[in-house]
Amino acid sequence: GSPLAQQIKNIHSFIHQAKAAGRMDEVRTLQENLHQLMHEYFQQ
């Protein structure tokens, strides 16, 4: 897949890990990143 698709997959797993660790501030930051990446992805 594209590097962007790979990045989106990575962030999904980072979010999963951050949630499991209870780091909600990190989850929020990652979700904002994910949102931006998704936006770029669909602009392609």
Rank of each mutant, 00 (worst) to 15 (best):
N10M: 14
F14A: 15
P3G: 14
Q17R: 08
Q31T: 12
A21W: 04
Q44W: 10
E32P: 01
K9V: 06
N10W: 10
Q31F: 10
Q43Y: 07
V27F: 04
I11C: 11
R28M: 09
K9R: 09
H16Y: 05
Q43R: 10
L37P: 00
M24Y: 12
V27D: 01
A18L: 08
L37M: 06
G1P: 11
L34R: 00
I11V: 08
M38W: 09
L34S: 00
M24V: 07
M38Y: 13
L30I: 02
L37N: 00
E26H: 05
G1C: 11
P3R: 14
E40G: 03
A21V: 04
Q6V: 09
L4Q: 03
E40S: 04
Q7Y: 06
H16Q: 15
I11T: 05
N10D: 14
E32S: 06
H39A: 09
E26L: 14
K19L: 12
E40F: 05
E26V: 12
H16D: 14
Q36Y: 07
A5R: 08
E40W: 07
E26G: 02
Q31D: 03
G22V: 02
I8C: 06
Q7S: 05
R28Y: 06
Q6A: 07
M24E: 07
I15H: 00
Q36A: 11
H12D: 04
A5L: 15
K9A: 11
I15D: 00
H12V: 14
Q36M: 09
A20W: 03
Q17A: 13
I15L: 08
L30N: 01
A18I: 04
Q17D: 10
A20P: 01
L4I: 12
N10E: 14
H12Y: 13
A5D: 09
R23C: 09
Q17F: 04
G1L: 13
T29A: 12
D25C: 15
E32H: 09
N10A: 13
Q7A: 12
D25M: 05
N10I: 13
L30H: 04
F42V: 07
K9W: 03
Q17K: 10
Q43K: 11
I15N: 00
T29H: 11
H35V: 10
K19R: 14
N10K: 13
F14T: 13
S2E: 13
L34P: 00
